[in-house]
């Protein structure tokens, strides 16, 4: 498995992974019942998989279905295992690797958006500059007084990262991010 032997002199045969890791976005449709998120998260921690971002909310109230969006990193082999292991969880209905589907449809990647609330405190020029930049990033002011703003910004992860970095010297106080919501382009559903 593209693996090179690393003799340990133990009862195990440890192999070194040589394949490069990729970032993928998974959509997981689950029964919204107690413990279901713990099952998903426990799977990732228990098997040593990575979670870069995780977003969850009930999306179909009548059927009590929640949609979990997970951004994870791993080799192709690990990503395949993650999908199959998620599918083994009893309340999991479907697992779609949105990155794979995007690739199959000739798209670079799935549509991904994140929302962040960013609180900036400052006076004078910094304050004016923060407001000017927020406008350039199409961030909304959702709360303000003479000392601070709370901006609401939506966009790709890179845009939010950039906005937060820019706000840092202008008096960044607090950040809250939702994690990534994602779906694929085109008329087809999940």
């Amino acid at each position: 498995m593209n693996a090179q032997l690393q003799p340990t002199g133990s009862a195990y045969f440890i192999t070194k992974e040589t394949e490069a890791a990729q970032t993928h976005t998974l959509a997981v449709l689950v029964d919204n019942e107690p413990g279901v998120l713990a099952r998903v998260i426990g799977l990732f921690s228990g098997r040593g998989y990575n979670i870069d971002s995780l977003t969850v909310s009930e999306t179909e109230h009548e059927r009590h279905l929640s949609r979990i969006t997970i951004v994870t990193r791993g080799t192709g082999h690990v990503l395949e295992q993650i999908k199959h292991q998620l599918e083994r969880i009893v309340p999991v209905h479907r697992v779609v690797d949105l990155s794979v589907v995007a690739d199959e449809r000739g798209h670079d990647r799935p549509m991904e958006r994140e929302l962040a609330l960013v609180k900036v405190r400052g006076q004078g020029d910094d304050r004016v500059e923060a407001l000017r930049l927020a406008d350039a990033f199409r961030a909304q002011v959702i709360d303000a007084n003479t000392e601070h703003f709370i901006f609401e910004i939506t966009g790709r992860v890179s845009k939010i990262e950039q906005f937060i970095a820019i706000m840092k010297p202008l008096g960044l106080v607090e950040v809250c991010r939702t994690g990534v919501a994602a779906m694929n382009r085109g008329p087809e559903g999940m």
Partner: peptide
């Protein structure tokens, strides 16, 4: 050792668990 496991065979795997 996995990198020397049955190196020249085509493998058929029947299993009820896709993982």
């Amino acid at each position: 050792r996995l990198d020397a496991f049955s190196p020249n065979s085509r493998k058929i795997h029947i299993d009820i668990d896709p993982s």
